[in-house]
Amino acid sequence: MYIRSILITGANRGIGLEFVKQFVALPKPPTHLISTCRSPDEAKELQSIAKAHSNVHVLKLDVLNESSIRTLADNVQRILEGQGLNILLNNAGVNLEKYVALENVTRNAMEQSFSANVVGPMNLCQTLLPLLKAAVSSSSEPGMSVSKAAVINMSSILSSIASVPPGSKASYPYQISKSAVNMLTKLLSGDLQPLGILVMCVHPGWVKTDMGGEHATLTTEQSVRNMLSLFSSLNESSTGKLLDHKGKELPW
């Protein structure tokens, strides 16, 4: 698997940062690994990686701000010099008001979760679509793959309506917004498949991060290693699907 260019959101910590680490360690790393976060100056570990690897670019991005997204697109276009973007990896997200009782769920948490987890990725895809199209145009590869052009949205098993057990504790803002991410993925896949752009969403597993907590069953290293293996196998049969980090298809 060779990916010339990839953009990763939320790359300053957790799964996003681990993606950066494992991509730069590949035998043939990306020519351009664009890592975004809200506060680049505070992303010390990410900045350290960028200093050691000239192919790593650290850019500011607030997915809640349309002006920030437009500025990012301009900067990415300059970096790629017309070659196009192979992967948009929408990893950034929020998990607000985890497992609170229904009467304590706030409108603010619902709106922030939907804005960050759904509207942000959708706007990024809209704005960066010309760069994804350019990647398809410059590729001679048949079919669909991450080496050609792909949008990968980070989802969760908690988004699966069919998998929610009766009486389970609910994280209303997170679970509802991630279910919306699944629908976004399905709709995008229908629109972008004729253009040769693969779109899918992935459940990374229960991962030991600030969001997943210390009792999670996977380290970031294990989860990302599995997802990189999965990405290398994605093709036209994968588009529009929700897969877990080992490639198992999950129910909507």
Rank of each mutant, 00 (worst) to 15 (best):
M1W: 05
M1Q: 05
I3D: 02
S5Q: 08
S5T: 11
I6Y: 04
I6Q: 05
L7T: 08
L7M: 10
T9D: 05
G10W: 04
G10C: 02
G14F: 04
E18T: 00
E18N: 00
V24W: 01
A25I: 05
K28Q: 14
P29I: 06
L33K: 11
L33Q: 07
S39W: 06
K44H: 01
S48G: 12
A50T: 12
A52H: 09
H53A: 08
S54D: 15
K60W: 04
L61A: 09
D62V: 13
E66P: 11
S68Y: 10
S68H: 11
I69Q: 08
R70H: 13
R70A: 13
T71C: 12
L72P: 14
V76W: 06
Q77C: 12
R78K: 14
E81Q: 10
Q83Y: 14
G84F: 10
L85W: 15
N86C: 11
N86H: 11
I87F: 12
L88W: 07
N90I: 03
N91H: 09
N91R: 07
A92M: 06
G93W: 00
E103C: 08
N108R: 14
E111Y: 04
Q112T: 09
S115L: 06
S115A: 11
V118L: 09
V119Y: 13
G120Y: 12
N123A: 15
N123W: 15
N123Q: 15
N123G: 15
L124H: 13
C125V: 15
C125A: 15
L128W: 07
L131F: 05
V136H: 08
V136W: 08
P142L: 03
P142M: 04
V151P: 10
S156P: 03
I157Y: 09
L158M: 09
S160A: 10
K169G: 01
Q175A: 00
S177T: 00
S177G: 00
V181E: 00
V181S: 01
T185Y: 03
T185G: 04
T185H: 04
K186F: 06
L187T: 12
S189G: 07
G190P: 08
G190Q: 15
L192V: 10
Q193I: 10
L198Y: 14
M200P: 14
C201Y: 01
G205F: 02
D210M: 04
M211R: 05
G212I: 03
H215I: 00
H215K: 05
H215C: 00
A216V: 01
T217N: 10
T217I: 08
L218N: 13
L218M: 14
Q222F: 02
S223A: 05
R225Q: 06
R225K: 06
R225T: 07
N226H: 07
N226A: 08
S229F: 10
F231W: 12
L234T: 11
E236W: 05
K241S: 05
K241A: 03
L243T: 06
D244M: 03
K246C: 10
G247V: 09
L250N: 02
P251L: 01
W252I: 00
W252H: 01
